[in-house]
Each structure stands twice: as structure tokens, then as C-alpha cells.
Design a binder for these strands. Structure first.
Lengths: 201, 201
DNA sequence: GTCTATAGGTGGATAGAC
DNA sequence: GTCTATCCACCTATAGAC
């Protein structure tokens, strides 16, 4: 096995720094996110980090980009569905799956404290791509007559707010009373479907 | 006018520090929130802050508490409504008003970066009181037969997630395409009412 | 590619004068 | 109540040895 083909060696310092950086960020917050602490957790010196990343900000940028890659990996699966309706529902399902299976990435991408990090390019640009994806699913349903003709922008907006609200509150521990992830998923799907029906009918 | 009765003198350093602290937090994020910078903005030395607050964390705690006071000031107005249904809808309305009229306080209270600030007592305790308030409104509607009997916990959960999702995305600028605050308010009310109908019918 | 050493900077908090 | 001066901790980033 050539090292060139190894994507995530357990001892790959670069990859290790990336995950340690992400974990530190979500565990201790932006205020405590330091390059030195990331290096400590990864078991290397602070100076070593500069062999892999251009600095603190660049490191965090890569954390965001890596999270987006994972996120898109989930979203695109919804396109494998057969009908427009299934693709729309599937999008919501994949969004939920991403959040529950990658809570740390979700927090970095969608629960960053507003202007917490200034530069992270994944904050103002890519989520727009996400939004467009959802708009396309809605438009698709309207074209197929599955959803009543309406402003796809508006319907997509409300759906996004709804799923983001549910997932973010769940990950924040505010919805612990709902029970298991499976129970939460039922609630998620039921309320989302009813919301869509209510908005389109 | 006795100074004892003056709550917010323009030159009241203590009050000035509080608002400067809040603004710095929402503008620059937790990572850049420093006692020294707050003091600079307030036009006093860093040491002067300690005459009013016990330190950096204590200062931020007071920022959170002040925001909660304002928030509750909005919520309780919903209790002035005549019927359970109007009180439930009114709660959502007041929640929206608070967010649009006090975006900085809203960000501090509900859009803090997860574990961004560790101690702030307004994060794990008080929002529970907020949630209980909403549960009470829902239960009230069910008792009155206005909402179909269901788990008030669950219905309140979905409503909270929905309104929080809409307001937080709006304040994050992700819903700029919706238009004016008035237009956004229409969307907010319409989608919320349909959600409630869908969940209870 | 990783280390140690170091330069240069910011911040929290305290002491003591006024 | 506010100031200046100060201490100490921690950080980013770089230089140069290995």
C-alpha cells in the first residue's frame, strides 16, 4: 500500500491535526481555540503545525471545508431517489442523518457563533449552495405537480428553518426529553412532512 | 432627580460597560471578547472594570441576565391576551418581536456558539423556563379543546424549533431574500400557524 | 518533518496612588 | 471610582538545528 494512496493514516499528522482542531473548537469554543492546544492534543509541537497548514486561520478553514465535504456527501444521496417527492423528503432525511452522525461537523458548520470566526469561507458562501439545492428540490416538486405552485424560495426557506431549528436544538441538548435519536427522527419526519403539506396545500 | 433613581444615565460607566460588552461579543465573537477591549470602547481603563464587575466572566454573565430580562419582558405580554389560542399565537409573535427588535440580545442568548462560553448561566437554565412557558401555552390550548390532545412537550418542541430556526436564520442574514421585516413577519406567522394546525389537527 | 528557542504581542488580574 | 504600573500566563509566528 503506497503512502500516496493513503488518505487517513492513523499516524498522519496532518489529518490528526484537522480532527483535533475540529474537536477542540466544538468542545472549548472559539475563545479557547488555539493552535498550540491543537498541537498539544495531536502530540506535536506548535511549530510542526506550520508544516501542514499556513496558520491558525488556515487550519480552521480546512476544518470547515472538510465538514462541508462530509455534508455534501450526505445531501447528494437524496438525488438517488426515484421521484421528486422522495428526493425532497430524502433531502430532509439526509440533513438529519448528517447532524446526528456528525454532530461536531454540524456544530462547526451551522452552529458557529454568528461572527465568531470572521473569515471561515464556509459560512457565507457554501450554505447558499445548500440552500439552492433545497430550492431545486422544491421547484422540482412544484413542476411535477406534487407541491402546489408557490414561491419555491419561500417554501424552501421555511423548510430549512424548520429542520435547522430541530437539529440545532437537539444537538444543543435542549430536546433531550424527546428520547432516543430514533424517537427524535420520527418527530422530525412527521413534523416536517406536515409542515410541507401545510405550506403547499 | 436623585442619582439613586437613575437607572441608565448616559455617563453611567457600569451600564455603559454592559452594553459595550454585549456589542463587542456579538460583533467580534467570543474569540475576540476581551475585558480590555470592552474597557477601551467604554473609554475607561481595564482596571476600572473591576470596580463594577468581578471580572470578565462575571461581566458576560450580567450581559446574559440583562438580555433575559428584556426577553421575558416581551414574552409576558402574551399573557395579556384573552384566549388560550391568542396567548399561544401571541407568544410566537412576542418571540419574533424580541428577535427583530433586539437582535444583539437574541444572538447572545440563543445563537451563542455552543460551548463558546462555558459558564454563562443563561444557557442551560433559563431557556428551560422559556420552554416551560411555551409548554404551558400549548397545554392551555389542549385543555380548552383548541388544540387536539397530544403530547404538549412534543408540540411545544416543534414550535420552538420552528420559530427559533426562522429567527436565527433571519438574523444570520440567510433569509435576506425574503425582503422586509414586515414581509418576513407575514411568512413567520403564516408558517407557524400552519405548523400548529398540522401538528394538532 | 519535527524539534527547541525566541521574538513580539495580547489579555486577565492585582497593587497602590490620587 | 478611576488611574498607571506591573506581573504572569498564553498566544502566533518565525528561525535554525537535527
Amino acid at each position: 500500500m503506497n503512502s500516496v494512496h493513503m488518505v487517513a493514516d492513523r499516524n498522519d499528522t496532518k489529518a490528526r491535526l484537522l480532527t483535533e482542531a475540529r474537536d477542540l473548537y466544538v468542545e472549548e469554543g472559539p475563545a479557547s481555540f488555539s493552535l498550540r492546544e491543537v498541537a498539544r492534543r495531536a502530540g506535536v509541537s506548535a511549530a510542526a503545525v506550520y508544516r501542514h497548514y499556513d496558520g491558525k486561520e488556515a487550519l480552521f478553514e480546512q476544518v470547515c471545508l472538510a465538514g462541508l465535504q462530509v455534508f455534501y456527501g450526505y445531501l447528494v444521496r437524496a438525488l438517488e431517489e426515484a421521484t421528486p417527492h422522495e428526493r425532497l423528503v430524502g433531502s430532509a432525511t439526509q440533513y438529519l442523518r448528517f447532524g446526528l452522525e456528525n454532530p461536531r461537523d454540524y456544530r462547526v458548520l451551522f452552529m458557529g457563533a454568528g461572527p465568531a470566526h470572521k473569515h471561515p469561507p464556509g459560512k457565507g458562501k457554501k450554505p447558499d449552495a445548500t440552500f439552492q439545492f433545497l430550492i431545486d428540490r422544491v421547484q422540482e416538486c412544484m413542476n411535477a405537480g406534487i407541491l402546489h405552485e408557490d414561491d419555491p424560495h419561500e417554501v424552501a426557506t421555511v423548510i430549512w428553518a424548520h429542520v435547522h431549528g430541530l437539529v440545532s436544538l437537539r444537538l444543543a441538548g435542549q430536546l433531550a426529553h424527546v428520547g432516543t435519536d430514533t424517537q427524535f427522527a420520527k418527530l422530525y419526519h412527521r413534523s416536517t412532512e406536515r409542515l410541507v403539506e401545510g405550506l403547499s396545500g
